[in-house]
């Protein structure tokens, strides 16, 4: 039996693993996809204190190697439930693991539009990562959907490659920085499609156009685009723990900066919990706080 099972091998989970191992606890990290979490999609990190510039892949690999060198075990298994008690049983698709404390570090993922054919057209025009896939749309017309900084940055990035970029946003003002909005306004090949939502994704084998509807006037039209970059925010993935810990209306685990859930022996860290700032630094900070809280709980 392990002292601590950590669910999620992103920045929060692996940081927790490092702190827990250094405190002398045995640690098992369970991850459904691959270590690193969301940061592996980021080409360059320039806001992590003490590291001037590093790729997301190198950062994640460094974190993984640090945690495993300290003796943390990482297994690729998808967790389906947790049976609570003094000894907790973490059940995965492959088996189960007993432990004294659990740290939920499940992160967040890109929010899909929730439209028909979205999954089928992912990889055939629909993308959630402009920096990953933008280069394949060189010289083509594309659209970005969203109103936050990610959407604005995506549109700016794509405007350097693509012939025309539509920025579709459901409101008439952006949540993102004014400076970014101004930069986009100065770009001749960027067109704002405001007060509008996407209602359909069209095309046979690949995306050909998106249907948009103006929410104020009710006017509908099709925009001919080969690429659609979805940047409408993130969503947590905590449904499996709904009966174990309290979730907010959006599905985030209710916890403060102390990383305590209302359930004894269950802690949480990183983007999966209620918080206002979701950054690498806050994820790793949570990892430390949750791990030390779990260590002191175990005694």
């Amino acid at each position: 039996m392990n002292d601590i099972v950590i669910i999620g091998a992103g920045t929060a989970g692996l940081s927790a693993a490092i702190y827990a191992r250094r405190a002398g606890k045995t640690v098992l990290v369970l991850e459904q996809l691959s270590y690193g979490g969301q940061i592996i999609n980021t080409p360059e990190i320039e806001n992590y204190p003490g590291i001037r510039n590093i790729s997301g892949f190198d950062f994640a690999t460094g974190l993984y190697e640090q945690a495993t060198a300290l003796g943390a075990e990482v297994l690729i298994e998808k967790v389906v439930s947790i049976e609570d008690g003094d000894i907790k049983k973490v059940v995965t698709e492959e088996g189960s693991h007993e432990c004294r404390a659990v740290i939920l570090a499940t992160g967040a993922k890109n929010r899909p539009l929730g439209l028909a054919r979205e999954e089928e057209l992912t990889g055939a025009g629909v993308s959630y990562c402009a920096t990953c896939d933008g280069a394949f749309f060189r010289g083509k017309d594309v659209a970005v959907n969203g109103g936050g900084n990610t959407a604005l940055e995506d549109a700016l990035f794509l405007s350097n490659y693509c012939s025309h970029v539509y920025l579709i946003h459901r409101r008439d003002a952006f949540r993102g920085d004014d400076k970014e909005v101004q930069r986009l306004k100065d770009k001749e090949n960027v067109e704002f499609v405001l007060d509008s939502v996407i209602t359909a994704l069209n095309g046979e084998d690949a995306l050909d156009s998106v249907s948009v509807k103006n929410v104020k006037t009710g006017e509908e039209k099709d925009l001919a685009v080969k690429g659609l970059f979805v940047a409408i925010g993130q969503m947590p993935d905590n449904a499996a723990f709904a009966g174990l810990v309290e979730l907010d209306d959006h599905g985030y685990i209710k916890a403060g900066e102390d990383c305590l859930t209302g359930t004894k022996g269950i802690f949480t860290a990183g983007d999966c919990r209620t918080k206002t700032v979701r950054q690498l630094t806050t994820a790793s900070a949570d990892g430390a706080v949750a791990a030390l809280a779990a260590c002191s709980y175990i005694g």
Binding site: G123, F136, F137, D205, A206
Partner: peptide
């Protein structure tokens, strides 16, 4: 028609028989 990477394609008999992205 690569539009997202990583992309895996399984070829058999000269044609793509299966695809996966991400």
């Amino acid at each position: 028609n690569i539009m997202n990477i990583p992309a895996l394609k399984l070829f058999n008999g000269g044609a793509v028989v299966k695809e996966s992205v991400g």
